[in-house]
Amino acid sequence: MLRLEKLTKTYPTGDMALQAVDLEIPAGQIVALIGPSGAGKSTLIRCINRLVEPSSGAAWLDDVNLTRLSQAALRRQRRRMGMIFQEYALVERLTVMENVLSGRLGYVGFWRSFTRRFPQKNVDEAYRLLDRVGLLDMADKRADELSGGQRQRVGICRALIQDPALLLVDEPTASLDPKTSRQIMRLIVELCAERGLAAIINIHDVALAQMFVNRVIGLQKGRVVFDGPPDALTAEVLTQIYGEEDWEATIRKPEDEDEAEAAPLPAGAGGA
């Protein structure tokens, strides 16, 4: 589905953010990308949809090489890659509905979007998604009136209304409290499963990553230093990724799993 071949990014400052990263993600797989700050996690997912231009290497989405596309072709491919941001990145002065519908900008013409007359099909889908994440009543509120967890759910709707094949998720829980973090992670994982989406999730919280994904990739100084199931994350591996520290408290113990399920998502039972 997604295949990275020797993907490299060197910033003009000389900072080698990615050093020949090879990676293959099959359709429908959810991958957590962990690593210390500055390891290149953000750069990696931004090089895939080319918000950051990679220096060399290739990124294949199915049989399209994303790194060689013209601007117009890149816009068409970006529609297939939904992105969810750290700090939500909603346009704060637009309404929730405008934020969600902005996920369709790659599909509709300028006048339609300028006059906010989106096809009825899109409007219905936006309402369904908002209902699915429990925010139907907030549709006409301005985005800056929402709480952090609510904003991130709007961000998820914006990514999903694109009808993507792949989700690029950048630190979705970085500014959320522990309970909301779990709800958001569970929501992302559930929605990916429902729709058969592949996802790359950058995440700081190792325990949270272990709780929700089947494959973890460790990045350190722009190189992949670990690729395996969450259970294989031992103290030695974490030391290799992050450096020396007491890891015993971070590594998931089997009995934690029941407790993880104890925080239900409010209004998660909408029709989708």
Partner: peptide, 30 residues
């Protein structure tokens, strides 16, 4: 302006004018 808000709109595959209209204009309008 806040670069990330504009970046999020660009990531949806918006054209330049749509990007200005959705990602930039709301930030400078007031």
């Amino acid at each position: 302006m806040d670069r990330v808000q504009a970046e999020a709109v660009r990531a949806t595959g918006a054209r330049w004018l749509q990007w200005i209209n959705y990602g930039v204009q709301p930030q400078f309008m007031p």
